[in-house]
């Protein structure tokens, strides 16, 4: 959670010209929120991303009310993919705990497994697409299908973006010259993003199997 030193309303009602306030202000460090800039950056990205997906979901909710909506079946494989994503989220939690106690050997191992699982997930999604296409559910044959392919693609793209940072984190763990706090921060932030990806998938998948 964002730790603020003052709440927003107190902050906005300060009187900067007041002598007493001024004396306090002179000691202010210039930082508003007690988080690292990388952490805040991640939060910013996730906020934008949440709005991005929420707007899609709003259009989805609006569009499914129209008469031409035909529900499409979900291949069993998607449940397996969901499990893979869940597993990698759990492993990332483990990796974060291990990096907190400086057990970087385990962290290396876990990060590699997570990367492998991410690839498995992507391949799994592609196979699911191929199964659906083989059954005649094309991208543009019904709007429900369009949303399915669109959501899965956007989610995979977010995952690919995450892999880029996972690669950077993994390189950090393997690099002897990098200080432990830096590695811990990378692993922690990547982990938060992985949990986020899992949650986004659960919301999107839940939406699609229920409509």
């Amino acid at each position: 959670m964002i730790k603020k030193e003052k709440n927003l309303f107190d902050l906005l009602s300060e009187k900067p010209w007041d002598l007493e306030q001024s004396n306090q202000d002179n000691l202010h460090s210039g930082k508003t929120i007690n988080l690292t800039k990388a952490h805040l950056g991640l939060k910013g990205i996730m906020t934008v991303s949440i709005i991005f997906f929420s707007l899609f979901i709003v259009t989805y909710a609006d569009r499914m009310l129209l008469h031409d909506w035909e529900k499409m079946p979900e291949p069993k494989l998607l449940w397996f993919n969901t499990f893979v994503l869940f597993l990698s989220s759990v492993l990332f939690h483990l990796a974060k705990n291990k990096s907190d106690i400086l057990d970087f050997k385990k962290v290396k191992f876990l990060l590699l497994i997570i990367a492998f699982l991410a690839v498995v997930f992507i391949i799994g999604q592609v196979i699911a697409w191929r199964q659906l296409i083989a059954q005649g559910y094309f991208f543009n044959s019904n709007i429900a299908n369009s949303y399915f392919y669109l959501f899965t693609t956007l989610h995979v793209l977010h995952l690919v973006g995450g892999l880029f940072f996972l690669k950077k984190a993994t390189q950090k763990v393997y690099n002897e010259n990098i200080r432990a706090p830096s590695i811990q921060s990378s692993v922690k932030l990547c982990g938060i993003y992985w949990h986020f990806l899992f949650l986004v998938w659960v919301v999107l998948f839940g939406l699609m199997i229920n409509s």
Partner: peptide, 22 residues
């Protein structure tokens, strides 16, 4: 979005000493 993250976080976190938001 890339630039915007920069502007927001710089203003929130990288101000100099004594520069409160107000």
């Amino acid at each position: 979005t890339m630039g915007g993250l920069n502007y927001i976080i710089t203003i929130l976190q990288a101000r100099t000493r004594g520069m409160t938001l107000m």
